[in-house]
Design a protein around this nucleic acid. Structure first.
Lengths: 345, 345
DNA sequence: CGATTAACTTAAAACGTTTTAAGTTATAAC
DNA sequence: GTTATAACTTAAAACGTTTTAAGTTAATCG
């Protein structure tokens, strides 16, 4: 910022006829944990100081503040892709809650690439973020491990890295997919297959596991099949994937993520496969795209608000109490019913 | 950040047997504008220093750096709502390009509220951002004026405030809506109305103006009608709005924003008004929601990538050359054709 | 060989805050 | 009227960098 001339604490001190320290005290006289004000400043002096600060539109110089106090009141949030609606909703809510808690947020998108993750973390750390909320991608375990070693507060979001002693907020992915299978089978489908990403991250793994487990439980292990498409051009990949499926046999699909779900419905549509008569399905996450589709689509709803809220809460707690042990929070999914799980005939 | 112990320039200097200043020189020895290195440092010494920095995973303390150099290498981006896909796409691209240009980005959402705008600007300035990209909301002219007064580089995005001498990147909204009217009329519709937000911002105003102008040009001024819904719960507002329209007469609608378009199609759907036989329409911006709709929907496509690219380019230019006069860039919209503008009969 | 210059290096101040430890009052208690 | 206590205030150091001006070499030139 190219300020004409910044108003500093010294200027205010001079005008008020007090020392810079006192100005700092007056300005930061918040209520501490003990319910007491942090400093003792004469009320009359304090309000005089505040008035002068107000008059000159004083704004704190955060650089100086964080240099001295070793706190930046900023947190870094590293997601896969902020233009994906699941993540942008989370981002939005983190932004709001962080703002209320007097933090600012730096966002970064990894595109599932560990190199990008590394660069982002490096940048954010050099900016001095007080903590990080991270959606891990493949092969980023060592990167995150080294962050933890430096003692930086970290909360993993959406995906887990089991080997690390770290805070996490994740969905109960297994139960989510178990339920999806149940509903489809109840609805009259039998040969249920899953379409998933070819990506070694925990949530994908657990979704697959849930699918397999429930299929086994229902005695359908012989028709278990997971198709994996690679991350990138989903629409194309989805067409390729579906063309490998024999829809005379396969009668229902579970999609493992929101992007896959939307791409899946589109591709099924292109193939002329009518839901739910020809094929049943369960999506992951809702989408505007479904609202206008003639068949209402059943989906697994993730508690986006809770994700954001809990992750932020935990990272702030971890900033303030670094010694507390890492904890895991598993959120419950909500199954939203729809006609796409009911074979009519 | 609660570092165990940060590695500083001094530590490196000690180990290399040189002064801290020399380490700083070696670390920042970029190529200046004259094509020369900024400092003269013995190559051999320089690489020794770099090696030591590497060895200890040295990361610059940005707080100290920006305190001293009065540059933060951060820019603030203030949007209406980052969870709106139009803005999240822009955000994503700004993020990427900023990262390559060695800047980090702070995002904030105003929800169209001037108070939030003010708080965000205040926070971002105290964080010392080098410049701001802003999507202005209603009544924020004085806020932005005061920012300009302080000499902070600003680029307005998507919406304009004509009275301010400021850089801007906007769409040619008038021509966009003129074209929408043309296409609908060519397609056989006549009583074209517009659904817009009840919001005093430039892009809305220009969209309405374009609609009116083209209707007049085509001799349809007597059926001109603009319906304005208030910002907030769009779905509800849209139902209310549509219920005031007599669809025996009105035969086509132009929606003034992406949220309105999606809500509009949903509401028309709920009312059982079939596109394009019963009613024609043009949307603003595409949406995933349209991809699965039986009728292909014509829409005005905004050059999202250009918006992001140009805004960032301009704010950086303005940071580096504060004295250059403010410039306006008007981007051309692209009309994406669809069946929703063709009355079949 | 002394002088000039170029190449390299450094000391030290500055950036604006926070925070500690040490004051200075004024008030209350004996 | 001490003295102890509380209430308030301040001086000064520290945070980690950048940058200016000054310093030291080493090389070149006449």
């Amino acid at each position: 910022m190219i300020n004409k001339k910044q108003v500093t604490i010294k200027d205010i001190a001079r005008e008020a006829g007090v020392s810079p320290a006192l100005v700092s005290f007056a300005l930061n006289n918040t209520i501490g944990e003990n319910g007491q004000k942090r400093y003792k400043v004469n009320d009359e002096t304090a309000s005089r100081i505040l008035a002068i600060a107000e008059k000159y539109h004083y704004t704190q110089n955060q650089a100086a503040r964080s240099l001295r106090s070793r706190r930046s009141r900023a947190i870094g949030v590293i997601l896969s892709d902020i233009s994906n609606s699941f993540f942008s909703s989370i981002a939005r809510q983190i932004e709001d809650e962080a703002f209320s808690a007097n933090y600012t947020v730096l966002f970064g998108s990894t595109d599932e690439k560990p190199e990008k993750m590394e660069r982002l973390i490096r940048t954010f750390l050099s900016k001095g973020v007080d903590g990080l909320i991270i959606v891990p991608c493949e092969q980023c375990e060592p990167i995150i491990a080294s962050v933890l070693e430096r003692g930086v507060p970290v909360v993993l979001l959406d995906r887990d890295i089991e080997s690390l002693p770290v805070n996490r907020v994740v969905l109960d992915n297994e139960s989510a997919c178990r339920q999806a299978v149940q509903r489809l089978v109840e609805g009259g489908y039998r040969r249920v297959e899953m379409i998933s990403y070819d990506m070694a991250v925990s949530n994908i793994a657990h979704r697959e596991a849930g699918y397999r487990a429930e299929m086994a439980e229902l005695g359908l292990e012989e028709v278990v099949k997971v198709h994996r498409v690679s991350y990138g051009d989903v629409d194309n990949a989805m067409d390729g994937c579906l063309s490998n499926i024999n829809f005379e046999e396969t009668d229902a699909l579970i999609f493992a993520t929101n992007t896959l779900s939307v791409a899946g419905v589109k591709a099924l549509h292109r193939k002329g496969l009518a839901l739910p008569r020809k094929i049943g399905m369960v999506a992951f996450d809702g989408s505007e795209a479904f609202d206008l589709y003639p068949t209402s689509i059943a989906y697994i709803q993730q508690p986006v608000g809770q994700f954001a809220h809990e992750a932020l809460l935990r990272v702030i707690r971890c900033i303030n109490h670094p010694s507390e042990p890492a904890a895991t929070l598993v959120l419950a999914p909500n199954f939203v019913d729809g006609d796409s799980v009911r074979r009519e005939e």
